[in-house]
C-alpha cells in the first residue's frame, strides 16, 4: 500500500465513527391512546337534537274526535302544523320535548296547502331555522314527531322525488321521503343536514314513504298570511 498512514487513519476514523453512529429508535406505537370509542355527541345539547327541541306534541278535540299531531316553532310564539291536525279543533294543547305545556290561542289555516299557524300563549325557548333553498334529490332529510301521539321519535331517510299531492288538495308539488312515519307525525318539521326546516310532514303510507309539504310552499305560507282562514270550532 502506498499510503499506509492515510489508510490507517481512515480505518480508525471509520471505526470510531461507526461506534458512535446514532441507533434508530424503536418504532413508535400506532397510537398512544388506548382504544376507546369517542362518544357521539355531535348536535346534542342535552340528549335531544335541535330538530327534537323545536318539535311539539299537539293535542286537541274536534266535534267528532280527539286529535294528536306534531307542530314546530316558527318563532317564539308561533307554531306550524298541518291544517288537518287542528282544523275544527278546540282545547288545543302543545307539549314541548321537556314536557312543558303550552295552550294554543288563535289558529290560522292555509287555504293553499296542508299547513296551519298556531299562536301559543307564552314564549317557547327554541326556534326553528327555515331553509332558504330546496333539498336535492338524494339528500338525507330528518323529521321529529310524535307517531301515534306517543314518544318523541326522530327518523331520517333520503329525499327520493318531487311528487304531485295525491293525498291532499294542494296545487303545489310535495316531497317524497323514503322513511317510515305514522299518524301523529303529521306536522313534523322536516330538516336538512344543516338542521334547517325544509318541509312539513303531512302524510305517509305507514310503511316506508312519507310526504312533506315542500320548502317553497312553506316559504309562501310564511310570507303570505293572507292565504289563510280562521279555524271554525263550533259544533253543530
Amino acid at each position: 500500500m502506498r499510503y499506509p498512514a492515510f489508510a490507517v487513519a481512515c480505518a480508525t476514523s471509520l471505526m470510531l465513527a461507526g461506534c458512535a453512529l446514532p441507533v434508530a429508535p424503536a418504532p413508535l406505537p400506532s397510537t398512544f391512546i388506548s382504544a376507546a370509542p369517542t362518544p357521539a355527541t355531535a348536535g346534542l345539547i342535552d340528549g335531544f337534537s335541535p330538530v327534537e327541541r323545536i318539535a311539539l306534541r299537539v293535542r286537541g278535540r274536534t266535534c267528532a274526535a280527539y286529535v294528536n299531531g306534531t307542530a314546530w316553532m316558527l318563532d317564539a310564539t308561533h307554531a306550524v302544523t298541518n291544517r288537518h291536525v287542528v282544523e275544527g279543533a278546540s282545547a288545543i294543547t302543545l307539549t314541548g320535548y321537556d314536557g312543558t305545556e303550552y295552550t294554543a290561542g288563535t289558529v290560522r289555516l292555509s287555504t293553499r296547502a296542508d299547513l296551519a299557524l298556531v299562536t301559543v300563549n307564552e314564549a317557547f325557548p327554541e326556534v326553528a331555522t327555515v331553509a332558504v333553498s330546496e333539498p336535492s334529490i338524494g339528500d338525507t332529510l330528518t323529521f321529529a314527531g310524535y307517531p301515534g301521539g306517543s314518544e318523541l321519535t326522530t327518523r331520517s331517510g333520503p329525499f327520493v322525488s318531487v311528487a304531485e299531492d295525491t293525498v291532499g288538495s294542494s296545487a303545489d308539488t310535495v316531497y317524497a321521503i323514503e322513511a317510515e312515519s305514522h299518524p301523529g307525525n303529521s306536522g313534523s318539521p322536516v330538516v336538512n343536514a344543516d338542521g334547517a326546516v325544509t318541509g312539513v310532514l303531512y302524510a305517509s303510507n305507514n310503511e316506508n314513504y312519507t310526504l312533506a309539504v315542500s320548502q317553497p310552499t312553506l316559504e309562501r305560507f310564511i310570507a303570505q298570511p293572507g292565504e289563510t282562514e280562521p279555524n271554525r270550532t263550533a259544533c253543530g
Binding site: 306534541r57 278535540r61 280527539y66 282545547a91 314536557g99 314518544e151 318523541l152
Partner: peptide, 16 residues
C-alpha cells in the same frame, strides 16, 4: 325524560 313526558302527555289525553 322521553318516557316521562310521554306518560304525562298520555295522562293529559286521558284527563281531557
Amino acid at each position: 325524560i322521553r318516557s316521562l313526558v310521554n306518560d304525562e302527555a298520555q295522562a293529559g289525553d286521558k284527563a281531557l
